[in-house]
Amino acid sequence: MSRGFSLSGLMRVRGIQERAAAQRLSRAVIDAEQSDARERHARAALDAAGSEAVDVRTLAAIAAARVAARRQLSEFESLAQLQAEAVDEAREAHREARREIRALDRLADAHALREQAAFLKAEQNEIDEIAGRTRRDDAT
């Protein structure tokens, strides 16, 4: 008498989509953290670089290295901003996937409750019929 949940296939698909969204979110967070670490490392290297120039050539080399390092830091900042946007997009996609799977879970729970109620009602009807037959048999 029990019917299966008709949206169980869709639930499996939504579960796969939710796990894929979680993976994308995780990857985006890892990429952002690695970029932040590279930026911190570059800043530390720039701060640690010596600035003692003994002649004009050394001074020019130090200036060029600092310009290149600042350009690299600027690129790191741009990359960090892009990755923060990617994390936000991945987080929103994961949130949406979780919302969809929760909606289906609620439908599945409601279906299970209806099936349980139908089973209990059928069982109660059988018990009532057996009790009615027993009374009729006792009366005769």
Rank of each mutant, 00 (worst) to 15 (best):
M1P: 06
G4I: 07
G4D: 13
F5P: 00
F5Y: 08
L7P: 01
S8A: 14
G9K: 10
M11E: 12
R12Y: 05
V13S: 08
V13F: 06
I16E: 15
I16S: 15
Q17S: 11
Q17Y: 04
Q17P: 03
R19C: 06
A20F: 07
Q23I: 09
R24T: 02
R24F: 00
S26M: 08
V29G: 05
D31V: 01
A32F: 04
A32D: 04
Q34L: 13
S35W: 01
D36P: 00
E39P: 00
R40I: 04
R40C: 05
H41Y: 07
H41I: 04
H41G: 00
A42D: 03
A42V: 03
R43I: 03
R43G: 06
R43V: 04
A44Q: 12
A45M: 09
L46A: 12
L46Y: 01
D47Q: 12
D47S: 11
A49D: 11
A49N: 07
G50D: 15
S51R: 15
A53N: 08
V56N: 12
A60C: 05
A60S: 09
I62G: 04
A63P: 02
A64L: 14
V67G: 09
V67I: 14
A68H: 09
A68D: 13
A68K: 13
R70L: 15
R70D: 13
Q72S: 10
Q72T: 10
L73M: 05
L73D: 01
E77P: 02
L79F: 01
Q81K: 08
Q81Y: 05
L82V: 11
L82P: 03
Q83P: 02
Q83V: 03
E85G: 11
E85I: 11
A86S: 10
V87E: 02
V87R: 01
V87S: 04
D88E: 14
E89S: 06
A90P: 01
A90R: 01
A90K: 03
R91Q: 11
A93M: 05
A93I: 00
A93H: 02
H94V: 03
A97Y: 00
A97W: 00
A97T: 01
I101V: 13
R102S: 06
A103N: 08
A103M: 07
D105G: 12
D105R: 12
L107P: 02
A108T: 04
A110P: 00
A110I: 06
A110L: 14
H111L: 04
A112E: 10
L113H: 08
L113Y: 04
L113E: 11
E115V: 02
E115D: 09
Q116H: 12
A118N: 06
A118M: 04
F119L: 15
L120Y: 09
E123Y: 10
Q124C: 01
N125H: 11
N125A: 14
D128L: 05
D128Y: 03
I130F: 07
G132L: 13
R133E: 12
R133W: 07
T134M: 13
T134A: 14
R135K: 13
R136G: 13
R136K: 15
A139V: 02
A139P: 02
T140F: 11
T140E: 13
